[in-house]
Amino acid sequence: MAAVRCVDLCKTYRQGDQDIKALDHVSIEIEPGGFVCLSAPSGGGKTTLLNAIGGLDMPDSGEVWVADRRIDQLSKGALAELRLSSIGFVFQAYNLIPVLTARENIEFVMQVQGVPAAERAKKSMAILEEVGLKGLEDRRPAEMSGGQQQRVAVARAIVSRPALVLADEPTANLDSKTSDELMTLFTELNEHHNTTFVIATHDQRVMGYAKRLIRMLDGRIVDDIEQHAA
């Protein structure tokens, strides 16, 4: 059973009067416990692929399977359920809800899932500790540094222990030291919980942490290498 399987995905955008092929017959398979980096220059199709896997965006043709479930034909509601239960997201910066505190942001997904308050509190405190944010739980995003905010986002993505975590340029707004810390955190989670990670990035440093590196260009996969993490 593959964690993610894409078959012959195509997706075309119109930008101005040009058609841009964001995905051009892309097929990949990612094993459970994989730690995959998608790397491509801007407009290379990596975010589109990531969004297709997460059910945020529909491909024009082809199939998307997540944990042996075909998702490209699900309804919006079913996709929301799927994201809620089995996929964690980490976006670029500004991806916390600004009016909620760190802890409330983490509990947000669980609350939507209907997890009882006591359990939520236990889990969120535990995860805050795990990502190294103990003591900052009552701060709002505006009161935290970029790295801290991104840690909250990671905590939120993994708190309900999804099998799959999708991250889009997670280090885009971080300095190199903070980037390293974040990637170390990802690696640990990958090893301890066997969580599958798919990370879209053009940061060389991030690619260095990946077990598998997929390079894309103009919507096509041009390179797919297994590598041993540093």
Binding site: L56, K76, A80, S85, F89, F91, I97, F108
Partner: peptide
């Protein structure tokens, strides 16, 4: 709008 998108991406339903 971005935050609404985020909530949707995290699995909140449109009705919410």
């Amino acid at each position: 709008v971005r935050e609404i998108g985020l909530m949707l991406a995290l699995g909140m339903k449109p009705s919410h």
